[in-house]
Amino acid sequence: MSGSGRREDAAAQERAEQEQAAPQISVVIPAFDAAVTLGRQLAALAAQVDAPPFEVVVADNRSRDATRGVALSAEPDLDLRVVPALRAQGANCARNEGIRAARAELLLCVDADDEIAPGALRAVADAFSAPSAPDLATGVPTGLDPVSFELPVSMDFLPYGISAFLALRREVFDAVGGFDEDFVGGQEEVDFCWRAQMQGFRLGVVRGARFTYEPRPDARSAFRQYRRYGATYIQLFVKHRAQGLRGSSLGAERHDVPRVARALVRLLRRPEDRPEIARGLGWIVGRWQGNLRHRVWGPR
């Protein structure tokens, strides 16, 4: 056999081995300064029960701490890679880079500070191989009834899946052009799921896939998080208002002024409730910021 023939045979064998070893699911984790929390999520992935072959792709988004080291020191049985997501700051850049580096056609995006339940990957694989399989789907947060759980709906328009656990086929990602990196801090999953549904893809719920969502524990971080949620909520409205979304008005917004004043008083008087109060306050302030930035009266 000629040298070129041997090289072609070797290349064909290498491709066959790669295809045989390809995972069924690629779990993508965007990570920024996640050294404190990432280990818990990786341990949950290592503890999956009856899981199909899967890989873990940690997309390191300009972390300044030991995120990369924590990922690389995870359970040795995990098929894990750390890929750089340096092009822009934000979870959406990291998700996009992680998905582009992933090998599977079935993708699962989870967050570095949450934790999936032991049977979650098996539930995802079974749901997406069923005759009535969705094209993208979310899991069910722990503490909620998986039977009665319904997809949340934003702005009375379309439902969406939760970014802390969002499974999708690669064709969906390719069709909608990935996550919109202009959204920084919230609403990216709403925008992604809306665009997917408007292109005819089916959104569902994997009721056997549970995950634990960890809220921000202190008032300061809770306020910042929900301020971003509120601001990007208005950004979402501006992007999609051509779909007939209805906004608010100056008269309606005035009702939030006394609510803010009462929230500030409660922050001082009820320290045990500060994170919850801060979330509500952050949401209002974020919406106001979004309204001013985009010069609109977005929905409440």
Rank of each mutant, 00 (worst) to 15 (best):
D180M: 07
W194P: 03
P299H: 00
A46Q: 02
P146H: 02
V70K: 12
E14K: 13
L281R: 02
N96I: 05
A31D: 07
R300S: 05
P258D: 02
D77K: 12
G230C: 07
V205T: 01
A252I: 03
I29S: 09
F183Y: 15
A94R: 08
D273G: 07
Q20Y: 10
L80M: 06
A59D: 02
R64E: 14
R122W: 06
F201V: 03
Q187I: 11
P299Y: 00
F223V: 00
V28N: 07
R6T: 14
A44I: 02
A43Q: 12
A175K: 05
E189W: 13
R270H: 12
Q41S: 04
D218G: 05
F183P: 10
R6F: 15
Q187G: 06
Q197D: 02
A74Y: 11
Q89N: 15
P52M: 11
Y226N: 07
P217A: 00
V176G: 09
L42P: 13
L250P: 05
V285Q: 08
F157D: 05
L281H: 07
D50A: 15
M155P: 01
G161R: 15
H255L: 07
D114P: 02
F165S: 04
W297I: 00
A164T: 04
V28E: 07
D126Y: 02
Y226G: 04
Q13H: 14
A101R: 07
E75A: 14
D77G: 14
E150V: 00
G298T: 00
Q24N: 10
A196V: 07
D174Q: 09
A231K: 13
R241P: 05
L45R: 13
E8D: 15
G3D: 15
I162Q: 14
G290A: 02
A196N: 12
A21F: 07
R207E: 00
Q197L: 10
V147L: 03
D156Y: 01
R227P: 09
F32W: 15
R224E: 11
L203F: 09
A167F: 10
T138Q: 14
G244V: 00
A112V: 04
T138S: 15
R227K: 08
R202I: 10
A46L: 05
A66I: 03
V153P: 09
R259L: 15
L281M: 06
L144I: 00
A127H: 06
Q225D: 04
L144H: 02
L151R: 08
V285N: 09
A263W: 06
V296F: 12
L72Y: 09
G119R: 09
R259K: 14
P76K: 08
V296T: 08
P299A: 03
G90N: 08
G185N: 06
V257G: 01
R7W: 14
D145W: 01
F179T: 05
A71E: 11
R274D: 03
R81A: 10
D256F: 15
